[in-house]
Nucleic acid binder design. Structure first.
Lengths: 225, 225
DNA sequence: TTTCCCTAGATTGCATACAGATTCGTTCGA
DNA sequence: TCGAACGAATCTGTATGCAATCTAGGGAAA
C-alpha cells in the first residue's frame, strides 16, 4: 500500500521518470538498503507496472550511480556510504570553487549586475526569516555562479552532483541562524566576483559549501534515526 | 551492410552495450549529425535488433549527454559543438588539477612510491619510442592520480569526463615529440607530489592536460576532413 | 566428509504486440 | 485564398511472452 500512495503522490512525467525519482528517493533515504538486490519482477509488482519501464529505470539509476548493474545479474543498490557522501560534498566544494573563480574572470557586465541585484534583494528574505523563499533564492544564486563560469561541461558536472546531493540537503536552512550566515558568505563571494578577484571568489565559495556540507552531514546521519 | 560489419567488429557485452558504444562512436565522429532525429524503428532495423535494446541504449546515451530525450518525442543527437568540446577539455584540466593537488596531500607512502616507480620505468618507453605502450602507461599514470585523490565522487566525475573525451584523444601520441614532452610534464607532477607541494602539483597537472587539449582540438577539427 | 557436476527453478535479455501521443496532410468553411 | 479542424499515418510508451543465462540444491564420486 505504501507503493500505491507513492504512485499517487508522484504523478508528473512518464512511468519511468516517476520510478527513477521514487527509487532514487528510496535509496538515498535508506528505504532500500545498500547491496540489496533489485529484481525486476518484484519491482514491477511493487510499482504495479510491467518489467519494461522497470528495466529502463534501473538503467537510468545505474547511469546516475545509485545502483550497480552487471549483465545477467540483478541490479543492486549502490553503497552510498557516509564516506561517499562526504566525497560528494567535497567534490561540490571544489566544483563551486571552480565556478566562482571562473565567474570572477568571465562573467559579463550584465551577469555581474544580475548576481549583485539578486543577492542584495535577498537581504529582506533574511530579515523576514522566509526560509522557503530564501532557499529558492539560494538555488538561483548558485545557478548563476554555475552559468557564470561559461563552461557547459562543468555546468553539467556541478548540476548533476547537486541533484544527487539534493535529498541530503533539504533541511539545510532549518538550522538556527543559517540564513544570516549564508547571506554573509554569499556577500563575500559576490564582492570578490564584482572586483574580479578569482582567487578570493574561489576560496569563499569553497568555504561556503564546505560549511553547508558539515551541517548537512549531521542531518544525514540523523535521518535513519 | 555497414551496420552488419559493425555488429561483427563489436562483439563484447550485451546488445545494449554494443549499441551504446557504436552509437557513441558514431556521434562523436560525426557519422550522426547533431540534431539528427534518432527514431527507434530505424535504429532497430539498422542494428538488426528489436526496439527494446534500442530504447535502453538511447536512455543510456541520454544519461551520458550524447543524445537529447523528451517524452513522446524522438531522441536527437546532442550538439557536441567545438565549444562544448573545449569546455570538456577545460573541465578535464580542472579536475586533473584537483586530483593532483589532493594526491600531493593525501597519497599514502605506498601510493607515492608506486607513482614514482611507474613514472620512472616509463622512461625507457620514451627512448624506445613505444607509442602504444606509453599510451597504456599514460592511462595508468593518470588513474593513479585519480585514485590518489581519495575522493570517490571526484574519481567518478573525472573518469566519466575522460571516457567521453576518449574518442577525441586517440591520436594524441602520434604528434611528433609528444612522448618526451609528456614524460617531462609527468616528471614535474610527480616531483611536486613527492614533496607534498599541492599547489605546484595542481598547476603542473592543469598545464599538462591543457597542452594535450590543444593538440587534440587540432586533431578533432581535422577529423571531419 | 568434501568436492564436483548436473538439473530445476528463478531471473535477466530480447522480441513482439498493443495502446496512447504526436504530426502532418487534407478537407471544409469563411 | 487562408485558416482551422479533423483524421490517418507514424512513432513512442508499456505489456507480455519466449529464449538464454544464472543460481541453488541434491546426488554421486573421490
Amino acid at each position: 500500500m505504501n507503493q500505491l500512495k507513492r504512485r499517487q503522490v508522484i504523478r508528473a512525467g512518464t512511468t519511468v521518470e516517476q520510478m527513477v525519482r521514487a527509487m532514487a528517493d528510496m535509496i538515498v533515504t535508506g528505504t532500500l538498503l545498500p547491496g540489496e538486490k533489485l529484481d525486476e519482477i518484484s519491482l514491477a509488482a511493487r510499482f504495479e507496472v510491467s518489467r519494461t519501464p522497470v528495466r529502463e529505470a534501473l538503467r537510468e539509476l545505474g547511469a546516475m550511480g545509485l545502483v550497480d548493474r552487471e549483465p545477467n545479474r540483478s541490479a543492486t543498490v549502490a553503497n552510498v556510504t557516509e564516506s561517499y557522501l562526504h566525497s560528494m560534498f567535497e567534490a561540490m566544494s571544489e566544483l563551486e570553487a571552480i565556478c566562482a573563480r571562473l565567474s570572477a574572470e568571465r562573467m559579463t557586465i550584465d551577469e555581474r549586475r544580475a548576481l549583485e541585484f539578486s543577492h542584495r534583494s535577498s537581504a529582506k528574505l533574511v530579515h523576514a526569516g522566509a526560509n522557503d523563499e530564501y532557499a529558492a533564492h539560494n538555488t538561483e544564486f548558485h545557478s548563476q555562479l554555475y552559468r557564470g563560469a561559461h563552461n557547459d561541461h562543468i555546468y553539467e558536472l556541478v548540476t548533476q552532483t547537486r541533484a544527487r546531493l539534493a535529498p541530503f540537503r533539504r533541511a539545510q536552512f532549518r538550522l538556527q541562524g543559517r540564513l544570516a550566515k549564508s547571506y554573509d558568505e554569499h556577500d563575500v563571494i559576490v564582492t570578490a566576483i564584482m572586483r574580479g578577484d578569482a582567487l578570493a571568489a574561489g576560496q569563499a565559495a569553497y568555504a561556503h559549501v564546505a560549511i553547508v556540507s558539515d551541517a548537512s552531514i549531521v542531518f544525514a546521519t540523523v535521518k535513519g534515526e
